[in-house]
Design a protein around this nucleic acid. Sequence first.
DNA 1: GACAAAACGGAACAGTGTTCCGTATAATAC
DNA 2: GTATTATACGGAACACTGTTCCGTTTTGTC
Lengths: 205, 205
Amino acid sequence: MGPQNDKNSISDDANQERRPVRADAQRNTDALLQAAMAVFASSGVDAPVREIADRAGVGIGTVYRHFPRRSDLIAAVVRREIDACADAAPVLLASHTPCEALAAWLLRYTDFIAAKRGLAPALHSGDPAYVSLHGYFQERLLPALQGLLDAAIAAGEVRTDIESKELLQAVANLCMSAGKADAAVARRMVGLVVDGLRYGAARTS
Amino acid sequence: MGPQNDKNSISDDANQERRPVRADAQRNTDALLQAAMAVFASSGVDAPVREIADRAGVGIGTVYRHFPRRSDLIAAVVRREIDACADAAPVLLASHTPCEALAAWLLRYTDFIAAKRGLAPALHSGDPAYVSLHGYFQERLLPALQGLLDAAIAAGEVRTDIESKELLQAVANLCMSAGKADAAVARRMVGLVVDGLRYGAARTS
DNA sequence: GACAAAACGGAACAGTGTTCCGTATAATAC
DNA sequence: GTATTATACGGAACACTGTTCCGTTTTGTC
């Protein structure tokens, strides 16, 4: 439920008369996203917009042309990282056993959540740029986890009585409570959860 | 150019005659705390310092004379509210039955936590002005709750198998997860907890 | 190459927290 | 009471944000 809003992608059916996106614009958008990702990772999400512009090698005006509000830039970065996390699922599934893939992906997801802790307050602050993020989060990550879970269940490697939605939420909560600079703790606790999944399968036999 | 003062020979190191706080300074400190409390409640903790200064009827310089950093002002307000919450315990105990006092105080505590939700991110951000707050929180609120709990236990009105520390934490967590503008939900959930405490006492018989 | 639309860059604006310092005041000494 | 002095006051000024504006440059098309 809820209207879909796509901001960055041009609708693909009505662009016959529409001029294509100019090459420099596309280049700068990419450079900005990459720079923002790096700056947010090193200086936190409160880093000045100018720092991102400098790192991307563009002027301030260009930043605001592509991302009218600072929060739009943040949201775009998070979107891109959600995509990267979701896309990792099938790759892992192709190169590992289902259960290994599930474990590896949950750790990947853990890192994602831990890196975004600084955002938690902003996400719940009602900024319109963020409201759609929550939906996108579920929309992309739930199917990704579900695929891994189904494969692991089909292989008889994990228990069958857990919902992907609950698991996603539980792991996120685990990481939230975990320490500030201590991602290792979070990973250890998630490891525990994975073992719990395995244990259920063993009991079933 | 002797560096020493020829006239001033009165001991200055063991200065017991510390100049008392000037009356206007004390007055302004109080006015600032009161104004800050009101402004934070209505505009949130991100309200501009100037707004608080205006409301208190003082200049910006005066604010920064009493609270060198903005975070110091916030911390002082929170400290004062922690005090108010802690001081409410003996008052409630004197005017209610132990169990009623306990229930009433937990609701009071709930409101305090709910009002401070906007602060949660800042508190964990390592700002030196806030690090001492956590200790102060426990230092004042734990004894307050413990006194209520002891009285209720002595009266046989509640179960005996809960730690005040856990209860404090549990109620805080309950309020955190509760909705943004919906303090009623939090109060209802805390009511549930209180009933749980009573239930334990009934079973003991 | 000429042209128009699109995008760029950065100066300028507005709103923060914070500092500085000349002025005013309260406590004290006489 | 007056004189003195440490203390406190006020607000202009500074540094640093996010954001807007608009002249200039680049890109794609004919």
